[in-house]
Structures are given as C-alpha cells and as structure tokens.
Nucleic acid binder design. Structure first.
Length: 407
DNA sequence: CTTCCACAGGAACCAGCGGACC
DNA sequence: GGTCCGCTGGTTCCTGTGGAAG
C-alpha cells in the first residue's frame, strides 16, 4: 500500500471534517445508552409508571411492576428516565432514595445480579467466593442499617429465570418484610412473557402487581422518534426527511425496534461522513443496513470459542460436499478436523449443545427431518451469507488451515 | 400395524479455577 | 491452610420420537 498516499487521504479527510463540521452535531445522542429528555409515543407508559412508583419517594409501599415488550420498544429507556427523575427529586428534597439497576443478561448469573444491586447501595461484594445467600444478607443488612427507599430494576429478567430459576426473584420480592424502615420496590423488565410459566405462583403474584405493556413502534412512530433524535444529533439538514422515512420503514418491518433504527441512522451518518458528503442519502442507509448485518456476523463468528469455530468450519465443508449435512455428518467432519488440528475432540452431546448455541446466535439453522427407518436428524446449514463467516474463520490462523485447502 | 433408526435434548454429575472466610 | 463457594465447560446416562421400511 502506498503509505504517503493513504496518509494524504487521511489528511484531507481530517481537514474536511474540521472545516465542514461533518454530518453529526452530537453523535453520542444516537448511542443506545443515551437517555433523551423526552420519549415520543411513550407518554402513557411513563405516566402509568410514574403513578405506580412515585409513592416510593414518600416512603410508602408501592406495587411491583412488570414491563413487557419486544426489544427496542423503550422499556429500559422509560425506567431509566423515571429513576433519574426520582433520583433528582429525591436529592433536591433530601429524601433518601436509591435506584439500583441490573441487566440480568449482561450480568449472566444470579450471583452477579445481586452483586450489582448491592453495589448500587454501596456494598462492596467480591466477584466470586461468597455464597449467593451471603450477598443477599449483606444487601439486607445495609438496608437495615441505612434507611433508604430503593427502586430495584431487573432488566431482561427472563434470561435469569430461564437459566437460574426464580429463587432470587422470590428472595428479592420478600425483602421488604425484613425491613422496618426502608421500602423496596421491584421492577422487572422482560422481552418475553413466557418466563412467567417458570415462576412459582407466589412469586408471580408479588412480582406482577402492575403490568405495563410496550407495543412495538409503528413506522410513523419511529419516524417521530428519529426526527426528535436527529434534531439533537445531526447538523441542520444533514438527515433529510426521505432518509428518516426510509430508516423508519426498514426498522418497522423488523419488529419496530427503535434501538436498531437509531443505530442504522448513526451508521448511515458515519458512511456519509466518510464518503465526504454533508448529507445522508438513501444509498448510505442501504449500505449501512448491509454493513451492520455483515459486521455483526463477522464479530459474532470471530469471537466464537475454538470448538464452535471448528464446528462452523465443518458445516461449511459439509455443505460443499453436497446438500445440507446432518448433525451426524457434521460431527464426523468435526472429528476429522480435530485430528487435523491435533485438538482433543468433544463428545457428540457437547457438540450438539454448541450447535444449539450457534443456532441461537443466528449463524446456523437446523431443521429436524424425519427419514423413517433412517432415523430422525437435523439438516444443518448456515443462516447467514457465508462471506463474513468465512472471513471470521480465516481471521483465526488455526482455523484458516482447515478452510483454505478446499478453496 | 409394528419396528427401529439416528438422533434430540433433559438431568445429574464432575474437575478445575479463583476467591472469601475463619 | 482448610473449607466452602459459584462459574465454566465439560461428560455420562438416559428417555423420547416421527415416520418410512418391513
């Protein structure tokens, strides 16, 4: 590569950004963790939540709440906004109030969810080593020692319940019983209502005293949301109406996910900026949609553990031989690959679990086929374009050895 | 109608690790 | 220093199953 040439390009690019100011006014306002002061089309939900939670500021017992809705429907944003408002109010009137937030999927285990909540109360908890019950009793001890009204938010609680059962929810829902002075209110957020089936009826009744449902946004609503956000994040006229309409139409057809809509808009803006343009075009949006998909697949593939990569490579090899391989054929191919690489192989059972994980990640699709006398099996194939997957696998020098020779 | 294949997928268990606590 | 803890990433053992072949 001609280094001076690329440096020159970089130089003019930097110049162009500095002189024109680029497409963005404030890129951070498009990030998923940005909390806007106003949430369009969530006024009702916000008011409802406010009514339920506000008494907590007076130190009254309040109902627990379950927020339910698909991803990107504004559940987390609503709760974040409300707890921020309550915190501000508490501070200005010197009312003891604490908001503790934990995302169960990101934390991963019940122990870490509790640890995160405890942290919000200023209780230091080691990241491992303690019994889970011990973390809980430290949390309770703190609440006994120091009177505060606590709003506990468990985001993506369905993940926790599915993985670890409802023990923790049960304990948390009864926590107020131990406390003479502090009041605790639990708000749980879920993408999936079926998690209620896993709950003990007692937990269910204390947990879901109020239910707020967040419907997916329509294309029109998404357009309003984008418009409001464009006003703070883009320069005047940098994101024309036709672009906003396109982004909202694309996102509405994909389950009305506002987070993805905002992300799409941000990436489109970045593409326009890199192109040196001062406004985002519809083409930029199309390119962005494609890029987001490819980057996602590449990123997921690249960060896979070794054996999942070997399996993925085996699926690709298997489908080259002809048709979609069955789980048995994939395993046979996998065993071969392991011996080529000199890696100890895993049991069939384990690889079946890894395949399921690949399917959940959306990289692979398995279809159960019955072949009568010849048994029942799964036909397995890639669920994404193979190009970014191959690129991801090749970026691992060890796995690259597996793929290259057949090219 | 029965059989029987080639798996699917649940459950229990295990080893090793990093760490807290007494 | 011994004991207990939770988590990860694995294994072993097991039961369940739709439908073409017999």
């Amino acid at each position: 590569m001609d280094q001076s040439g690329s440096l020159g390009e970089l130089d003019t690019y930097l110049d162009s950004i500095l002189t024109r100011g680029g497409v963005f006014k404030d890129r951070d306002a498009l990030r998923h963790d940005f909390i806007p002061a106003h949430l369009p089309h969530r006024e009702n939900e916000l008011r409802r939540l406010g009514e339920v939670l506000a008494p907590l500021l007076r130190g009254s017992k309040t109902s627990s709440a379950l927020l339910y809705g698909k991803t990107g429907t504004g559940k987390t944003a609503c709760v974040r906004l409300i707890s921020k408002l309550m915190q501000d109010k508490g501070q200005s009137r010197s009312i003891p109030f604490t908001a503790a937030y934990a995302n169960c999927r990101l934390e991963g285990t019940g122990y870490r969810v509790l640890a995160r909540l405890a942290e919000a109360l200023g209780v230091r908890v080691p990241f491992t080593g303690l019994a889970t019950g011990e973390v809980l009793s430290r949390l309770v001890a703190r609440l006994k020692a120091q009177t505060t009204n606590l709003l506990m938010v468990l985001d993506e609680v369905d993940v926790l319940v599915r993985e670890a059962g409802d023990d923790i929810l049960y304990e948390l829902s009864r926590i107020t019983e131990y406390l003479p002075k502090s009041k605790v209110t639990l708000v749980v957020i879920s993408n999936d209502l079926s998690f209620k089936d896993y709950l003990d009826p007692r937990v269910l009744s204390t947990l879901c005293e109020e239910e707020v449902i967040f419907p997916p946004y329509t294309a029109d609503q998404l357009r309003d949301i984008l418009q409001a956000r464009v006003a703070v994040s883009f320069n005047e006229g940098a994101a024309p109406a036709e672009v906003i309409s396109l982004v909202s139409a694309l996102s509405a057809s994909e389950h009305g996910d506002a987070r993805r809509a905002l992300n799409l808009l941000r990436v489109a803006g970045e593409i326009a900026e890199r192109r040196g343009g001062s406004t985002v075009t519809k083409d930029d949006v199309e390119v962005a949609a494609h890029k987001i998909e490819e980057d996602h697949v590449f990123e997921v593939g690249r960060s896979l553990p070794l054996h999942s990569k070997i399996l993925l490579a085996s699926i690709i090899k298997g489908s080259r031989i002809g048709g979609f391989p069955t789980s048995g054929e994939v395993y046979a191919e996998y065993l071969k690959s392991c011996s080529i690489l000199g890696v100890p192989d895993l049991t069939y059972r384990r690889t079946a679990m890894l395949l399921n994980e690949l399917e959940m990640l959306g990289l692979v699709r398995g279809k159960i086929v019955n072949m009568g006398r010849h048994g029942r099996t799964r036909k397995i194939r890639l669920a994404t374009p193979s190009e970014p997957v191959l690129r991801a696998l090749r970026s691992d020098s060890m796995i690259a050895r597996l793929i290259e020779p057949t090219e």
